[in-house]
Design a protein around this nucleic acid. Structure first.
Lengths: 184, 184
DNA sequence: TCGCCAAGTCAGCACTTGCTGACATAGCAA
DNA sequence: TTGCTATGTCAGCAAGTGCTGACTTGGCGA
């Protein structure tokens, strides 16, 4: 940014960035195994061989995506009802993140699996657990896990094409129903 | 059954049955795309070429699985709290069925996709919708879809390895929390 | 016994996957 | 200008995919 490199024809930083972005989108849309390196390269407008060069492997590219997302720290907690709307909006705009994918279907690659689980823990389960603990509810950990899993079911369901009204519904309509799920 | 064929060494009916069963299990464990015809054949103890012979293709084998499951009619409705326990038990024993998979992640093959959606509709969403309608709640369809999606999130989460306590929890512990999700 | 056909086996085709290595070239330093 | 290196391109390998077709073999009726 501050360096203001104007995207030379040869610019490895720019290529890396585009690969990350394309991988981010495709991971959200299709998950890890169903995304090919050729897909990523095509969407990024970058030769697929550069994935291996810059990131080492497809798996490490996706792990880099997770780490990059972790950095932005903008993911709202489910504990705050107001911010659940933000979450819906964000998901509507960017698709369900890779973190959601892994909550619902395990990935073959152990390293990818581990990184995604850590992200899920830090960004969704742990904050909710604290919320329930603060409220003095019993089994706060189990409650947090159930609530997270249920919420992710709704999020993923919106994109799976299996739920007509759910997919079409406006987040504000969903909010009261989803708050029911979360205040376990 | 009534014919009582004692499983000759050559028995196409038996082979078909074993292929169906193996496909059923693997679809539940790994989903459609991540299951190979060789996997199915190996688990069934039947040559994989017979899948093409008897069912036409891998996709049609899985559709046959869906149809067969539909027939048994034993799937409990979520509307009946008592039977939610049965559902957990059944899923614990057999794994999450193919119907659950597709609710959360779309499949590439359109025919498989369509068959799974129909099964989801008939066996989960519609009964719940009726339940909500009978109770006079507004937006029964949307409620049914949200509840189904949330429930499936919990079911899938139990198997995804991302939720420690949820995976370890006994269904009877889960029941009160899940009933909260469902009585929207 | 013989011949036929359903049932089962096997090798391999055509394709896709992640990844690699040889090559080409832009841009900069000397 | 002349090299040198970071950057990008390309073809292709090895493994794995669904599916096919030629082949063998078991079991039964004639």
């Amino acid at each position: 940014m501050s360096t203001g490199k104007p995207a030379h024809r040869r610019d490895s930083a720019r290529s890396k960035e585009r690969l990350l972005q394309a991988a981010r989108e495709l991971l959200a849309e299709r998950g890890f195994e169903r995304t090919t390196v050729r897909d990523i390269g095509e969407r990024a407008g970058v030769d697929q061989a550069l994935i291996a060069r810059y990131f080492g492997s497809k798996a490490r590219l996706f792990i880099a995506v997770l780490r990059a997302e972790e950095g932005d720290g903008t993911l709202p907690s489910l504990a705050d009802p107001e911010r659940v709307l933000d979450l819906f909006e964000r998901v509507g705009r960017l698709g369900p993140g890779p973190v959601f994918q892994v909550a619902v279907q395990p990935t073959r690659d152990p390293a990818v699996q581990k990184a995604a689980h850590e992200a899920l823990e830090a960004r969704m389960i742990a904050p909710l657990q604290e919320h329930f603990t603060a409220r003095g509810l019993d089994r706060p950990r189990l409650r947090a896990e159930v609530a997270t899993a249920a919420f992710i079911g709704v999020i993923m369901g919106r994109g799976a094409g299996a739920f007509e009204e759910l997919a079409a519904a406006d987040p504000t309509e969903l909010l009261p129903l989803v708050r029911g799920l979360l205040s376990l």
